[in-house]
Design a protein around this nucleic acid. Sequence first.
DNA 1: CAGATCATATTGGATGTCCGATATATATAA
DNA 2: TTATATATATCGGACATCCAATATGATCTG
Lengths: 100, 100
Amino acid sequence: MREFGGECCDMRGLLGFLILFLLSKKPMHGQEIANELAKRRGEKPSPGTIYPALKSLKDLGFLSEEKEGKTITYGLSPKGEKALEIAKKRFTRTFLGIIT
Amino acid sequence: MREFGGECCDMRGLLGFLILFLLSKKPMHGQEIANELAKRRGEKPSPGTIYPALKSLKDLGFLSEEKEGKTITYGLSPKGEKALEIAKKRFTRTFLGIIT
DNA sequence: CAGATCATATTGGATGTCCGATATATATAA
DNA sequence: TTATATATATCGGACATCCAATATGATCTG
């Protein structure tokens, strides 16, 4: 049970969900997202984590992107917003009562 | 990204955490825990999921148990309560703002 | 134009998570 | 006693997650 062995409570499986949530607050590019996740998690996700995650979300049609020079600013597509709402409901039902 | 492919938002990596939380509310045996998880998740975890998870938590010294016939009622040990508090803090910091 | 820096991207692999199938033990029913 | 149901337990393996290392491309500075 990895989440209590010292690296308690990582976000296994919920990374995409967290990214969608963060992007719903404010459009960001990859590094900004990584930094924002670092604040929450305590550790900055590696490039090999963040970019494949973004690619997956993009492939699912959940992201809008705007390229400007070397940076790509991501936001939520309408499909992404819808997916986030559904995911939020499930997340809330599953973890209800834990956050007090 | 499995959590949006149709089986959105499973609890990957947070199963042990959820079990500790449930047991902090009320001591339960394996099947009760599985049923309680079913309510939250929508799907009942299989025996191959729930019992290894309980074993891990037990091996970590987080559970107290009381055997009575064929059922084993689990509760939290002092060590388990402490671990839950720490895990709750991390969870809250990570997912703050998502549950509205 | 080099050289440095930053953002993005890919890939290989170690590890973790969870399920299905199966097995054991206890209790209940016929 | 035999059959059935329920709770617990284990094992093998499919799949997912995430990181480290590395590579690509753009921007800036000397």
